[in-house]
């Protein structure tokens, strides 16, 4: 019986205690904010939407390789040595590769921050922007390359020409070497080591 009265009293009393606490909170300062109007500060190192500075990117593709979810797609073109533009990267070093394609699929990105740490030129960075919802997934596929299509075609052409030239030069060299070889072959028998080398 004493137990029963005690339980009933406890039930009543703890309800009163709880109501006192909630009543006190009723008049306390509220912690939520009206989101789009005022918002909590985001620290500058927050990892949100990625941003690539195309003038800094040297096309090393480390980010593409480290990305755990394969959301970065990079394609590069070799810079022709006698390019009239004499391209430079923004940090002053000489550009060796054009980056005609640098795409990030933000629908896939997991914001792990690995790409930003491997980048040798600090071209890819996380920004504090986090509101980029779109109505379709295609809009989340962002192309960062600053090269215009005409420029890409031009550079491709230049590279092709250069490569053709190079190839011709190589073929010339190979032919010369072959001629040399045939001359030497005619002169004397070759050792099996050099033979295997040439067959490669």
């Amino acid at each position: 019986m004493i137990e029963y009265i005690k339980n009933v009293w406890l039930g009543f009393w703890t309800v009163i205690v709880g109501m006192r606490i909630t009543l006190a909170h009723l008049f306390e300062k509220k912690v939520t904010v009206q989101y789009p109007d005022d918002r909590y500060p985001i620290p500058p190192n927050a990892r949100n939407k990625l941003y690539l500075d195309p003038t800094l990117c040297n096309g090393c593709t480390s980010c593409e390789r480290i990305c755990p979810v394969n959301c970065i797609k990079v394609e590069t073109l070799r810079v022709v040595p006698d390019d009239p533009e004499r391209p430079m990267i923004a940090d002053g070093s000489k550009r060796k590769l054009w980056v005609p394609v640098y795409d990030i699929d933000f629908a896939k990105c997991c914001f792990c921050g690995l790409c930003t740490t491997v980048c040798p030129t600090f071209a890819i960075k996380h920004t504090v922007e986090f509101e980029y919802s779109t109505y379709s997934r295609d809009e989340l596929y962002v192309r960062f390359s600053d090269m215009s299509p005409e420029k890409i075609i031009e550079k491709k052409k230049m590279l092709d020409e250069f490569q053709a030239k190079e190839k011709a030069a190589k073929a010339e060299a190979a032919r010369k070497a072959a001629e040399e070889k045939s001359k030497t072959d005619a002169k004397a028998e070759t050792s099996p080591v050099t033979e295997s080398k040439e067959s490669n």
């Binding site: 909590y40 620290p43 190192n45 927050a46 990892r47 914001f111």
Partner: peptide
Amino acid sequence: LAIFEKASGARLLFN
């Protein structure tokens, strides 16, 4: 989570 964000940059999946 605000502390985590200040330190690591993320609120939930820190890496």
